[in-house]
């Protein structure tokens, strides 16, 4: 992953007019989520962590990685439903428990090891098989693995990651914007409180601009 927005940290805008009181409170709660399970047991947690690391792989050596698995755990604990459920899927928590156990069982039967102990390439192969609907271990309990992947794994993991300020900084999103909003709306028009993209050869200019965001 390239550092497209060098020096940009959306959290530097926390005390600017782009963030209101309620936004600060909401993000504070999100940042307080620690990397530990409260809904899943130890085995499920290990599989979930490994799965998240393949779906949204974070840069190596990142000082504080986004606790994606914990955010999914949080959603399951809160039973935060989506407003719809495919008729062939069980409810949120049950789908996750069963899906993680089944993925682990598939790893055991195919490679003789837990899912989280597999090499990344083998994990990806199993994930692709899940995506393609070809995993049929009894542990799925009749739950179609492709539906589980498409309607649980993908939305829950991906949306958790991109709900985190670290991800906003990574993609150059302006982040919260109330009450200030934005002024410059045109092509290639950047407000001073938005991320500056590093064009080839102009990384330093972008860095300088980004360090000014929130100042």
């Amino acid at each position: 992953m390239r550092d497209v927005f060098p020096g940009y940290d959306v959290l530097n805008k926390r005390d600017t007019p782009s963030w209101n009181e309620q936004t600060r409170a909401v993000i504070e709660r999100r940042l307080a989520i620690t990397d530990e399970p409260r809904f899943f047991d130890a085995r499920e947690w290990a599989v979930l962590k490994a799965l998240c690391a393949r779906i949204v792989p974070q840069p190596e050596g990142r000082a504080s990685p986004v606790p994606v698995a914990a955010m999914v755990d949080h959603k399951a604990l809160e039973d935060a439903r989506d407003g719809f459920r495919h008729i062939d899927l069980p409810a949120l928590g049950e789908a996750w428990r069963r899906g993680l156990a089944a993925l682990d069982a598939e790893a055991q039967s195919a490679d003789g090891a837990s899912f989280d102990a597999l090499a990344p390439e083998r994990q990806d192969a199993l994930i692709r098989a899940m995506e393609g609907g070809s995993l049929k271990h009894a542990a799925w309990g009749g739950m179609p693995c492709d539906l589980f992947f498409r309607m649980r794994v993908i939305p829950d993991v991906v949306k958790s990651y991109y709900a985190h300020p670290t991800a906003w900084s990574e993609i150059g999103f302006g982040g919260p914007a109330s009450p200030r909003g934005y002024v410059r709306m045109d092509f290639d028009a950047r407000d001073p409180w938005e991320a500056a993209e590093a064009k080839p050869g102009q990384e330093n200019e972008a860095l300088r601009e980004n360090l000014r965001v929130g100042r």
């Binding site: 909401v26 993000i27 719809f84 459920r85 495919h86 949306k159």
Partner: peptide, 20 residues
């Protein structure tokens, strides 16, 4: 209202419904 996609799902009807 916060400026946040996840928090603001509180505006939606997220009670369970079955789709097929």
């Amino acid at each position: 209202f916060a400026s946040d996609e996840q928090e603001q799902t509180k505006l939606f009807w997220t009670d369970e419904r079955i789709v097929d």
